[in-house]
Design a protein around this nucleic acid. Structure first.
Lengths: 338, 338
DNA sequence: ATTGAAATCCAAAACGTTTTGGAGTACCCT
DNA sequence: AGGGTACTCCAAAACGTTTTGGATTTCAAT
């Protein structure tokens, strides 16, 4: 039989109220009674029914997060983020409710289920879109959330990495290494960080008096495969670029494959750079030059901020822009010898 | 204001019961009434309160999983598993409740919170221990679960990979490549798969008339760092081994570092092999010879089996032993030339 | 006209908790 | 004796849903 407050109350000869208040640590129950109740609760292995508690108190101590349901394998960016968020959530006494959904309508209905269904106290939103319906929804219902990524349009709590600055540094780095034909494999336009990063790329070119060439900018969709396809197109141009920057590491790794497949060597014949610094960037051959986003640590900070928002504490700064860190590895070649 | 069944009932001029039954699709409500109710529900954006539903119906459509709360970074094995489980859970209409906990008492109390607290319909247990208190608990309360890993002691539903066979194949492979001094970096004894894998190692040695040498077996704790330490000890022996097998990939990668640090080359001077085939195994330098556990796919199958158990369907086989697949890469060297 | 069955609806209970608004006692101070 | 305070305790309501066990109406068949 399942043991409830009622079981304990009968065993102890007190009311349900008293048991509840004894276990919750209220001051209005005799110390001796409390000890007896606690002893009985432990002996019977009492576990509060959380559904009942949530129903009554409206607090779930759960954080929600929806991740993309990809066809076959796992996205290292999201897995790293889940790890960071899950760890820090536990640290604060929260569990993490995960739902993997196809992007679009299905995803939004998962948000509604979690939020309006009262299953979570707050949400983490990752990979923000340009006009993000998820953020619009959360704002509309005044539900606590923090996003990894920013949009200017409606201001909201976020943590983000300065992608423009990161891209600028990449361009500067490649120019220093002697490159003048620098291509870009772009992320989908609807992603909020795309404009940011592409802006940094353009600003970099301008700063070093390099022309912006239409044919050097190709659209990818963040997957390794799309990076490979894009790089193949670039390398087949009459005047192929000597360096390729991808908007994320996965596409950069795909581009490396394309370079290999052409019989060229990454870092010597073609320089490659990515963005994110996923674990694989370190161990790839050659290791990938990239811009570091401390994803795991950002997961921590997202939760820290969200926990304070959920508890309606004063948060000094709900819009955090982190400075990126250029990580130079072998894929961008060797410094020019002078 | 929050919209509940009551709101809709008032708007439609019917009872709460009727609204509930209309939305649930019961046959005892007039088709016209049903349509009106559904129209109102959609117009008001009704979302059922899941806590209330769970409290009453005892079904949560949630699967629980506890992962280790490691100090700093994410364990690729668990992240891969979470990805597979999360994806397939969504496919079945389930969400995934994750809790990151330190192993031991804290972990067990997370199990109790989820199970006895009525938050989940079933659990996935990963990295099974020799006499696993989590499994003992789940069996005691008759709660549905499936484990990744097996213990003989109490029989339970599981999916596992035949570690003994995998290890045997690794040894055979290394012997074929000319090795006679094959060391083992062992996983912690309390893990269920340790006995399995070590047994395969011994059986392999015996089959090829190689001696089992105490000093060639060193204890690790599954982390990269422990693999490195173990390999350093092995390489410092008077007669160091020519090949090292680690019980998981992470330790094998650590061992590679130790080999590098000694100025030796992995694959030429010392052969290294691991177990798991995590994503990094492919991209490491040199790529790691290992035994493949299709972790993502196992996540799928765990959920498939669990869903059937939770719905009390007949399950033909609740104990699945998968045959492993030897994946030969450069870290074990080149075939002998004859 | 009566009966029976089918179709449609609903009041009330139940799930297990927290919270509200006191009630009862004991004791001390005037 | 009366009034105040501190300390313990509790009945009942509330959270929003599902389910139980009818009640009512309609209509066709006798």
């Amino acid at each position: 039989m399942h043991v409830t407050l009622k079981t304990i109350a009968e065993e102890a000869g007190v009311s349900i109220t008293t048991v509840s208040r004894a276990l919750a640590g209220y001051g209005d129950v005799n110390e001796q009674t409390r000890r007896r109740i606690i002893e009985i609760a432990e002996r019977l292995g009492y576990q509060p029914n959380l559904a009942a508690r949530h129903l009554r108190s409206k607090r779930t101590y759960t954080i929600g997060m929806v991740i993309p349901r990809t066809a076959h394998y796992s996205d290292p960016f999201f897995m790293e983020l889940v790890a960071g968020v899950g760890k820090q959530a536990s640290e604060h006494g929260y569990d993490l409710l995960l739902s993997a959904q196809m992007q679009g309508e299905e995803e939004l209905s998962a948000y509604r289920r979690m939020v309006a269904g009262g299953r979570v106290d707050g949400m983490i939103v990752a990979r923000v879109l340009w006009q993000d319906p998820r953020i619009a929804y959360l704002r509309q219902v005044y539900h606590p959330f923090v996003a990894f990524g920013r949009t200017e349009d409606p201001a909201h709590p976020y943590i983000d990495v300065d992608g423009a600055e990161g891209m600028y540094q990449l361009v500067a780095h490649l120019v220093e290494y002697g490159h003048e034909r620098i291509a870009l494999i772009q992320s989908p336009r609807e992603l909020a960080f795309t404009a940011d990063r592409c802006g940094g790329y353009r600003r970099g070119l301008e700063a070093f008096d390099l022309p912006y060439r239409e044919e050097y900018v190709i659209q990818g969709n963040l997957t390794r495969h799309s990076g490979r396809l894009a790089a193949e197109k670039l390398l087949a141009l009459p005047t192929p670029p000597s360096a390729i920057i991808a908007c994320n590491d996965l596409m950069a790794l795909g581009a490396s494959e394309a370079v290999h497949a052409r019989g060229l060597r990454v870092g010597r014949d073609v320089a490659i750079a990515g963005f994110d610094d996923i674990p694989e960037a370190t161990t790839a051959t050659p290791p990938l030059t990239t811009v570091r986003q401390p994803i795991y640590g950002i997961g921590h900070r997202l939760v820290d901020m969200l926990v304070r928002l959920m508890q309606h504490e004063e948060v000094d700064n709900t819009q955090v822009l982190l400075q990126p860190e250029l990580v130079i590895r072998a894929s961008s070649g060797t410094p020019p010898t002078r």
